[in-house]
Amino acid sequence: MGRRGLSANAARPPIDRRATRSGYVLPRVSTGLSRLLAYAIFLLGWQALSTFVFPPFILPSPVLVAQEMVSIVESGQFLTHFLATIGRLFVGFAIAFVLGAAIGIAMGRSAYWREFFSDYIMLTLTTPGLVFALICAMFFGLSPLGPVVAIILTAMPHVTINVYEGVRAIPRDLLDMAHVYEVSRPARVRNVLVPAIAPYLFTAARYGFAIAWKITALTELFGSASGVGFQIRTEFLLFSMRGVLAWALFLVIFAIVMERFVLMRMERRFFRWRRQAFA
C-alpha cells in the first residue's frame, strides 16, 4: 500500500503508445523537445567542428555565416539579387503551373493528349535539371528568360502528372448525383470538380515549386548577371565558403517559409473538412 501510494504521488510519465507497439516502453518526451534538441546538437556540433577541427575557409562557424548573412542584407545586395531571383521564380512558376494544369486536364480527359505528352513528361522527369539549366543559360544568355524557360521545362511535368492523377480520381458517383439533380454546370465545377482536384493541385504546387527555385538558382549560376545563383557563383569563384553558405541559407529559409507559412496555411483552410471528420 505504501509503495503504491508513493508511486501514485510521483509524476508518472505516460507510456508512449507508439513505442509500445514496436516492443519497448519509453517515457514520453514531447516531440517538440526532441526537435529542439536536434537543432541544438546540430549547431553545437557545427560550432565545435569549425572551431577545433576545420579551418574557417573549409568550414566557417555558424556565427561567421550568420554575420555574413547580416552584412549581405545591410549592403543592399540581398534585396537586389533576391528580388531578381524571386521575380523570375514566380513568373516561371506561375506559367508552369497554369500550363501544367491545363495539360494535365487535357491528358486526363483525352487519350490523344495523354499519348501526345507522355514521352515529353517521361524525358523531363528523368533528365537531370543540370541539362536544362545549361541549355537555357546558353540559349538565352543574360536575359531573364533563361531561368523562366528552365522552370517551365522542369516544373511543368510535375504539375501535369499530379493534376492528371486528380482528374482521373474525380468521384464519378458525386458527379452522377449532381447530374441526376440537374445541377447547373458552373455549380458542378465549383462544388464537385474543383474541391475534388484541390488536393492534387496542392501537391502539384509543392513539387513544382520545389523544383522551380532550385532550377532558378542553377540557371542563374550558369547564365545570369544577377540573382542568388549569380551571387553563389561569384562567391564560389572567390572561394568564399562563408558567402556560398550564406546565400544558400537564404534560399533554403525562403523555401521553408513558403512551404510552411504559405502552402500549409492555405491547405489548412481548404481541408478543414478532412481533419474534422472522424474515421
Binding site: 458517383d173 458525386l174 452522377d176 448525383m177 449532381a178 441526376v180 439533380y181 440537374e182 445541377v183 455549380a187 462544388n191 464537385v192 474541391p195 473538412w273 478532412r274 471528420a277
Partner: peptide
Amino acid sequence: ARLGYVFQSPRLLPWRTVLDNMMFVQP
C-alpha cells in the same frame, strides 16, 4: 418530371456542410 434520387451510399459532398449539401441541389 423533376426527380429526387436517394442512392445506396449517401453521396454527400464531403467538403460542404450538411446544409450546403442540401442547397447544392436546389433549383
